[in-house]
Design a protein around this nucleic acid. Structure first.
Ligand SMILES: [Mn+2]
Ligand SMILES: [Mn+2]
Ligand SMILES: [Zn+2]
Ligand SMILES: [Zn+2]
Lengths: 154, 154
DNA sequence: ATTCTATTGAAAATGGTTTTCATTATTAAT
DNA sequence: ATTAATAATGAAAACCATTTTCAATAGAAT
């Protein structure tokens, strides 16, 4: 699962006239090997541990690029920083939504009822597209609450 | 609709040992008289026009307070600043969700299918509460797309 | 190995928001 | 109306995630 995805990625970059550099590979490997929703700085720290001459600026730039390429998704969970996740990963389910603890900020992926959610979303999208002339290309569904652990704490 | 809500608000503040000051009243009046989702700075500009010695700091502080009091809601639509809306207003519908143009950043309230949405949300909330022990107290549903007008522009 | 230029890292700049602190204004009691 | 207690304010500075600048570096096709 190393060589293969590496070449796949390489191809996607080269296809757009982009270079597949060490920082880009390391950032993709970092996102590939976690189920967490990492911030730019968290990614930077992990990459930096392996390869100390990668800068935070490059992490930001690469994340923007990967988002534009459709390889990662950006989320705002309310802690003031963007968080990122591989669009398709071997370590987590496909289309899913998020459950956020407003106290400890942990984020849980869930896919209970997603099919029903997606079905309803499609219906709403169609209605909104017609009614407002919008061309819809994305949605966000998030639940906020207090996790089991944080409910105990004062 | 002036004197009445003014006294209602006054009571809500005094009930918590808080004072009902001029900046607070002006900010509430500003939010009451628009259907837009204003940013702190936009609110500041409008308040400042009427009453030039109100500071931006106070606007931020007041918005935080009003959110904690449950009088306004805060949203992040992806333009890097928080936007606010009165929870219950005479100028707009009740429970609704949002449609955001990623190009011109306009936000449209919609309530088509909200009942179905809310019904499904309840079901999901219940499942998530049981499965993860979460105490859920809010949700976000947003659609992103390109508005009719922006589709024409290059 | 060479050339072309996309990419990089460091430092500075940006922009929304928060903190600090001395001053002011709201309120309840007088 | 005055007063006293203290919540609230405004200005300036600090904060912090992100972006911009720019000279140096390093992919990749030849
Ligand atoms: Mn996720
Ligand atoms: Mn709204
Ligand atoms: Zn928690
Ligand atoms: Zn638009």
């Amino acid at each position: 699962m190393e060589k293969k995805s590496k070449m796949e990625w390489h191809g996607r970059f080269r296809g757009r006239g982009l270079r597949f550099t060490i920082p880009r590979r390391l950032i993709l490997e970092t996102l590939s090997s976690t189920i967490d929703h990492l911030s730019a700085e968290e990614i930077y720290i992990r990459v930096h541990r392996k390869y100390p001459n990668v800068g935070l600026t490059t992490v930001y730039r690469t994340l923007d690029l990967l988002e534009r390429m459709g390889i990662i998704s950006r989320f705002q969970f309310g802690d003031g920083r963007s968080r990122f996740e591989l669009v398709q990963s071997s370590t987590k389910a496909g289309h899913h939504h998020h459950l956020v603890c407003t106290s400890c900020k942990q984020v849980i992926d869930y896919d209970d009822f997603v099919e029903e959610e997606v079905e309803l979303l499609k219906k709403v999208e169609k209605a909104l597209a017609k009614k407002h002339g919008f061309e819809i290309n994305g949605h966000v569904i998030q639940f906020y609450g207090v996790c089991n652990n944080c409910q105990k704490q004062p």
